[in-house]
Design a protein around this nucleic acid. Structure first.
Ligand SMILES: [Mn+2]
Ligand SMILES: [Mn+2]
Ligand SMILES: [Zn+2]
Ligand SMILES: [Zn+2]
Lengths: 142, 142
DNA sequence: CTTCATATTTAGAATAGTTCTTATTCCTTG
DNA sequence: CAAGGAATAAGAACTATTCTAAATATGAAG
């Protein structure tokens, strides 16, 4: 189990590595993402942060999420044109979008899978990232 | 080479299979997509359709594109939160988004690649579709 | 052919999610 | 303690898209 202070120290470290400050808002938002990893939207994060920090604004939530994405502590995930969702899972993984429930599941990828997929690229296509999105029906209990 | 009448007959067939009518607007929009396969946005399609049909409205372009997607004649493609792009390539393929130019390239997939990727899914995850998106630098001439 | 019912198109209003602007507050450093 | 930059907050603005409502086209039935 990762303690609260561990993760906020990790956060502070990453932020200062990027020349940014650690702030109460950034800490609350990162902790919200770590606490419930269900790929919340910015509005979801806003709602979850408010009880802990009633004066926080939606603009700040967007700013902080963007900052966390820039620091590579969080991934932004998009399905079609729905609201962006945020994911603190840094391991290489794909996303499964359950069309019945709207839920998003992480699909861990075996090592080498991403390279295997990149191998389909013709010569001189140089990919900095590969994203895999599944859509369908997920098991009820997952 | 696919003749204009061939493709508009194929379109008429697909539409009537879905209980829909073939209309001049739908034909123009489909032909615009076939003519230049650079993954245009709805606005791009609107601009390209106008010379042939000056009275066409943007709402109709959206309506027709949606119809073509429903009929499985066209794929809608999204990158982050940019405008939706439209692709008439029906073969299984991935997309490569060139971050320098903004261009989108089709990446043909060897047969079996999608099944290979689906094989990473844990039991009881039933995917109806798999989408693969690359991001990076494409060769200048492609 | 007409008539009628319905599908489609159109123009513009409305919407959702996000970004921008500006003023204020908060730190950090000298 | 200043000064200066960084960050936040509130609300306006923006973009792509969808919705609404009225007009038009189409096609089946008589
Ligand atoms: Mn997506
Ligand atoms: Mn996308
Ligand atoms: Zn995830
Ligand atoms: Zn394509």
């Amino acid at each position: 189990m990762v303690s609260n202070t561990d993760s906020s120290e990790a956060l502070a470290q990453r932020l200062s590595d990027s020349g940014l400050r650690s702030t109460p808002q950034r800490e609350v938002i990162y902790s919200v993402l770590l606490k419930k990893r269900d790929h919340p939207t910015a509005e979801d994060v806003f709602a979850r942060a408010k009880p802990e920090m009633p004066m926080i604004s939606l603009a700040t939530v967007y700013n902080c999420l963007e900052t966390l994405v820039q620091c590579d502590l969080v991934r932004a995930v998009n399905f079609e044109r729905g609201p962006t969702r945020y994911c603190p899972n840094l391991r290489p993984h794909a996303h499964f979008h359950d069309e019945a429930t709207g839920a998003t599941h992480d699909i861990e990828l075996p090592p080498g899978m991403l390279d295997q997929v990149k191998a389909v690229l013709p010569p001189h296509f140089d990919a900095t990232s590969v994203e895999i999105i599944f859509r369908g029906k997920a098991p009820s209990k997952a």
